[in-house]
Design a protein around this nucleic acid. Sequence first.
DNA 1: ACCCCGGCATTAAAGCGTTGACGACCATTA
DNA 2: TAATGGTCGTCAACGCTTTAATGCCGGGGT
Lengths: 152, 152
Amino acid sequence: MTELPVSERLGSHLKRAEQALSAAKNAALKQAGLTVSQYAALMHLSANPGISAAALARACAVTPPTMNTVLKNLQEHGLVERTPHEWHRNVLETRITEKGSRVLAAADPRAVRVERGLAAEFTPEERETLVALLGRCVTFLDAFRTAPDPES
Amino acid sequence: MTELPVSERLGSHLKRAEQALSAAKNAALKQAGLTVSQYAALMHLSANPGISAAALARACAVTPPTMNTVLKNLQEHGLVERTPHEWHRNVLETRITEKGSRVLAAADPRAVRVERGLAAEFTPEERETLVALLGRCVTFLDAFRTAPDPES
DNA sequence: ACCCCGGCATTAAAGCGTTGACGACCATTA
DNA sequence: TAATGGTCGTCAACGCTTTAATGCCGGGGT
């Protein structure tokens, strides 16, 4: 029935790895009270105060509605505040709060520990190779997704 | 503030790649009316008729509640049927329906086209290297997640 | 005979993520 | 001035995913 064995599909390995990464990071960040997405948003927000939600979404590689829900959760916990822009009435400026900075500071070492541990598993050449190969995956897949469908 | 530049985090590259893969596959499967998760479940179901939902969850590397929602959606579309097990009263046997097989047959070439296209971007050595590196990521991350927390 | 353990199924709650559809705003251009 | 296009924010609908908690069943040990 299936035209290709599961073990030969790069996709399954890729998915597996991302899943393991996400699980490890979420577990590490859990005691700080953040999810991976919230951590990523806070990080970019800390480096770019007053950024718009749409720009933040682009930085985190998610869609605006997704970022909206993440920000809503962060706002409910008081880690972030959103104020109307002065001239651009339609834009909300988002800023990390003092409490948000404290939570981020507590969370960062935990996330970094995962990254450093993972990086330590490889030699510099291997890391470079992995990043390059993954980059080629992205390039191809993004092009493929946009390409016309052979049997539409 | 941040102790490690984003671009040096293997995690972001891994996440990017998985996201691109998922987007490409979902786009390819959309015209067949399936999601990636549904496709994966149908594939394992086609190869293992009557498998339990928990076993199917293990095969697809998700949790039982996740598989439950996927199966619920598949069942609502008539692609799958679940009947009580004969002796084991607490177990539901899940089977792909005739309609499910047709949908899977229509979806499979589309998914395979993505996989083959992606695989064609690499030499056999590169594929092997990528799979091996991803495998080491999984090994480390799974161990890390289970390991004791240095500051609990 | 009894009880406990382990696997299965399910629910609830929470969060992430997408597409699609709108309405609002600004700036450029006709 | 008026139309146009691009950006922004948001709602609705849908689906995936996880953790935590509960209930149910069958088998094995005492």
